[in-house]
Each structure stands twice: as C-alpha cells, then as structure tokens.
Lab assay of single mutants.
Amino acid sequence: KELVSALYDYQEKSPREVTMKKGDILTLLNSTNKDWWKVEVNGRQGFVPAAYVKKL
C-alpha cells in the first residue's frame, strides 16, 4: 500500500473529508482525482486536498 505524509494541518469541512495534522502518515487509497485524494487516517476514510500531502 502507498503512504503519504501530511504537509499541513487540514480540518475537514464535510463528512466526506478527514482531518489530518502536519506530519501525519496516511494510507493513500485513491489518487485518480488531481485535486482530492482519498486516504485513511486513524481508521477513517475520506478525502484531503492533494496539494496538502506528498507521496513517501
């Protein structure tokens, strides 16, 4: 599985998104959309802005 690192804090703005803190390591589930990537963090799945994470 592919991992990404959070470059910035992000506070979810809808139920489809997830909150992350800078430095968090997230499991990348889907990166086909260039703007929003689906990740899993702390057992929750949702979307984060692609520009806020980088692949490890």
Rank of each mutant, 00 (worst) to 15 (best):
K1V: 14
K1P: 14
K1L: 14
K1F: 14
K1Q: 12
K1Y: 15
E2Q: 14
E2I: 15
E2F: 12
E2L: 13
E2G: 10
E2R: 12
E2K: 10
E2A: 11
E2S: 12
L3R: 09
L3G: 04
L3C: 13
L3I: 10
L3M: 12
L3F: 14
L3A: 06
V4C: 15
V4K: 01
V4P: 02
V4W: 14
V4N: 02
V4D: 01
S5D: 04
S5Y: 15
S5N: 07
S5W: 15
S5V: 15
S5E: 15
A6S: 05
A6M: 02
A6E: 00
A6P: 02
A6D: 00
L7W: 05
L7V: 09
L7E: 07
L7N: 05
L7G: 03
L7D: 03
L7K: 09
L7A: 06
Y8R: 15
Y8I: 10
Y8T: 09
Y8P: 01
Y8A: 12
D9I: 02
D9T: 06
D9E: 05
D9G: 06
Y10F: 07
Y10E: 00
Y10T: 01
Y10I: 01
Y10G: 00
Y10N: 01
Y10D: 00
Y10M: 01
Y10P: 01
Y10S: 00
Q11H: 14
Q11L: 14
Q11W: 13
Q11G: 08
Q11E: 14
E12M: 13
E12T: 09
E12S: 15
E12W: 06
E12D: 05
E12H: 09
K13S: 11
K13Y: 05
K13A: 12
K13H: 09
K13N: 10
K13E: 08
S14Q: 08
S14Y: 07
S14V: 05
S14M: 07
S14A: 09
S14G: 13
P15V: 10
P15M: 09
P15F: 10
P15Y: 10
P15D: 14
P15I: 10
R16P: 05
R16Y: 14
R16N: 14
R16Q: 13
R16D: 13
R16S: 13
R16K: 12
E17A: 06
E17T: 09
E17C: 08
E17H: 07
E17G: 13
V18M: 10
V18T: 06
V18Y: 04
V18H: 03
V18A: 05
V18E: 01
V18R: 01
V18S: 02
V18F: 12
V18C: 10
T19Q: 04
T19P: 07
T19R: 06
T19F: 04
T19M: 04
M20R: 00
M20A: 02
M20H: 01
M20P: 00
M20W: 02
M20I: 15
M20E: 00
K21S: 10
K21M: 11
K21A: 09
K21G: 05
K21P: 00
K21W: 09
K21Y: 10
K22E: 08
K22P: 03
K22I: 07
K22M: 09
K22H: 06
K22V: 09
K22Q: 11
K22C: 07
G23K: 03
G23P: 00
G23F: 05
G23T: 02
G23Q: 03
G23S: 04
G23D: 07
G23V: 01
G23H: 06
D24T: 06
D24V: 05
D24F: 04
D24R: 02
D24K: 02
D24G: 03
D24H: 04
D24I: 04
D24E: 11
I25G: 02
I25M: 08
I25H: 05
I25W: 05
I25P: 03
L26Q: 00
L26G: 10
L26T: 01
L26I: 09
T27M: 13
T27C: 13
T27W: 13
T27L: 14
T27H: 10
T27R: 11
L28E: 01
L28M: 04
L28R: 00
L28T: 01
L28I: 07
L28S: 01
L28V: 08
L28D: 00
L29K: 04
L29W: 05
L29V: 11
L29F: 04
L29Y: 04
N30K: 07
N30G: 07
N30I: 09
N30W: 08
N30L: 09
N30Q: 10
N30C: 13
N30S: 13
N30A: 09
N30E: 15
S31E: 14
S31Q: 11
S31L: 05
S31C: 13
S31K: 09
S31N: 10
T32S: 14
T32V: 10
T32L: 10
N33Q: 09
N33I: 06
N33S: 10
N33G: 11
N33M: 09
K34G: 10
K34R: 12
K34W: 07
K34E: 11
K34D: 11
K34S: 13
K34I: 11
D35C: 14
D35E: 12
D35L: 14
D35P: 02
W36Y: 08
W36G: 01
W36T: 02
W36D: 01
W36R: 03
W36K: 02
W36F: 07
W36Q: 03
W36H: 03
W37K: 01
W37E: 01
W37G: 00
W37Y: 08
W37P: 01
K38I: 14
K38P: 02
K38T: 08
K38V: 14
K38L: 15
K38M: 15
V39Q: 00
V39A: 01
V39H: 00
V39Y: 00
V39T: 00
V39I: 07
E40N: 04
E40R: 06
E40V: 06
E40L: 07
E40I: 06
E40F: 05
V41H: 14
V41E: 03
V41C: 12
V41Y: 11
V41A: 12
V41R: 12
V41S: 12
N42M: 08
N42E: 10
N42W: 06
N42S: 09
N42R: 10
G43Y: 04
G43S: 06
G43T: 05
G43A: 05
G43M: 05
G43R: 04
R44K: 13
R44L: 08
R44D: 04
R44Y: 06
R44Q: 08
R44F: 07
R44C: 07
Q45C: 12
Q45S: 12
Q45N: 07
Q45A: 11
Q45V: 15
Q45P: 06
G46F: 07
G46A: 03
G46C: 04
G46Y: 04
F47I: 07
F47R: 03
F47N: 04
F47T: 03
F47C: 13
F47V: 07
F47K: 02
V48T: 01
V48P: 00
V48W: 01
V48A: 03
V48S: 00
V48C: 04
V48K: 00
V48N: 00
V48H: 01
V48M: 01
P49Q: 02
P49M: 03
P49G: 02
P49E: 02
P49V: 02
P49S: 02
A50F: 02
A50K: 06
A50V: 06
A50L: 02
A50M: 05
A51Y: 10
A51G: 13
A51K: 14
A51T: 12
A51V: 10
A51M: 12
A51P: 08
A51D: 11
A51C: 14
Y52T: 08
Y52K: 07
Y52L: 14
Y52P: 02
Y52R: 05
Y52G: 07
Y52I: 07
Y52N: 06
V53D: 01
V53H: 01
V53P: 01
V53Q: 00
V53Y: 01
V53I: 11
V53R: 00
K54V: 15
K54P: 02
K55V: 13
K55P: 13
K55I: 14
K55G: 07
L56E: 10
L56Y: 11
L56Q: 09
L56M: 11
